[in-house]
Amino acid sequence: MSGYASGIVAILCINLIFAYGVYVTAAAGQLNLGGAGYQAIGAYAAAVLSTQGWTPGWGTIPAAMIISALVGFLIAFPVLRTRGVYMVLATFAFAQVVSGVLLRTSLFGGAIGMVVPDYLPLSVLILAAVLTTLFVFFLMASRFGLAIRAIHDDEAVATIMGVDVRGMQVTVFTIGGALAGLSGALYAHYFSFVEAQYFNPNLSIFVLLFVLIGGTQTAWGPLAGSLFFTLIPEALRIGGSWRFVVFGVTIVLMMAIRPEGMITRTLIARISSLFHRRPSSSALSLPNARPDLPDARMGDQHAK
């Protein structure tokens, strides 16, 4: 594989794992606009551990995951006190603080960044991406996944159904932290260099967009989003600013035409029914997941 191609594959793997880190919280209805902060923690943890030789061999990677998971766990408590716009801004502010601390601490090389001694081959990145994807698919198919999707739709009813909403939310922030941290550690080892400026607000914005444009309804969403936004610009051979213009136009159009994201549950059901040959499936006859709001509204008025 040429250096160019393997670079793209590496970025794809890193973006994918990172996107899953943001996805698990989004699947539970929490928008994390501070993804870069978690990724930076993983990257710098791996870089420092590797430089200082505190962990043997590739122990840096699990260690970085644990550290960023711990940060995700701890930050979940204050962040979960907030809602809506406040949560978006709290996670955003968190990432800015992380980047500020990194820039000002000499252990982390300040604005110069850090060289990471141990180089990681591409095969490890691919393996990690595959394992992460399988893990998230498994998670979303489990009762845990069902519970967080219920929280996404209606926290109050999920609580009455016995779901520990707060506990689940803390857990997804922890898992999200671990995955973003993993992507950061892989980044540090593959590119052998980290600098705080890389983990900027744009990165947080992009990864959230990968997830939202891909679709939050299924674990296919982040996969589609990362593939689309990493490979399409390469395939079209567009670089530099045009890439971002195309990205922006895609986002605006997607939000206008298909705001639920590229991959939806209905789409998955339609595809799987092609294989299972279940023509009676009512999923086929329904264009899209739309509740009959008028009915619910009537109930509301009735309540008053």
Binding site: L146, R149, A150, H152, D153, D154, A156, V157, Q217, R265, A269, A289, P291, D295, A296, G299, D300, H302, A303
Partner: peptide
């Protein structure tokens, strides 16, 4: 159960 239907819209 609930007076206004409170099924989760994104769950089957």
């Amino acid at each position: 159960s609930f007076q206004n239907i409170r099924l989760m819209p994104h769950l089957s």
